[in-house]
Design a protein around this nucleic acid. Structure first.
Lengths: 109, 109
DNA sequence: CGGTATCCTTTCGGATACTG
DNA sequence: CAGTATCCGAAAGGATACCG
């Protein structure tokens, strides 16, 4: 809870889980989550990396530097559990129905 | 996440889940969770009640007033999901092993 | 007993600017 | 591009005191 309850932490995990769980660039994540500033995104990614939920691959050979992130197996399995919370919410929280937004980060689950 | 990520929220749910999920008095919960001030406990219980995870029964006929709380069915089912997070943590977080403290609020799960 | 009210500190995170 | 540095306001929550 210590690191997961921080603002945007879970949303970032969901963003990395989205589609194929492959490597995603810093700027790509930022564009997908426009409300998150680069400071917060950077902080959260570092925390999640320290906790082993995310791995970071940096290619400094070229300019500009290319930095990519993806979920670890541990991180993927956590998202699977979070999906259970989604199931719970769909059952009990009526207003939490599937929306029409094709890119909705919640409804992708 | 909005209300669950607040400090002590999940711990309070676990405390109410503990043993038989029966009515528990405000002071009983406080004694079990000595780190939580009555202000915070009161705030969290109210939030969880608004969200339908907890119900409160007040008996004002006598003095002092007797106020009791317990999980709703919805709240119990959420704790069941939280137990899955515990399973995840036991698998991946090595330092998160079952401790010897008989009253540990985490290991009761 | 079961809270509120008040105050005060600490933390969080948003905005903006800057850099290798 | 991928961050970091700085500043700042808002909000969370702890300590303490008080009340019906």
């Amino acid at each position: 809870m210590e690191y997961l309850s921080k603002k945007w932490a879970i949303m970032i995990l969901l963003e990395l889980y989205k589609n194929d769980q492959s490597w995603k660039r810093f700027s790509t994540i930022r564009k997908a989550m426009k409300e998150v500033t680069s400071k917060i995104l950077s902080e959260r990614l570092k925390e999640l990396e320290v906790e082993g939920l995310v791995i970071n691959k940096i290619d400094a050979s070229a300019f500009p530097v290319k930095s990519e992130y993806k979920l670890t197996e541990m991180g993927i399995e956590l998202v699977e559990v979070i999906k259970e919370i989604k199931v719970w919410a769909l059952k009990w929280k009526i207003d939490n129905c599937v929306c029409k937004n094709q890119d909705c980060r919640v409804c992708i689950l």
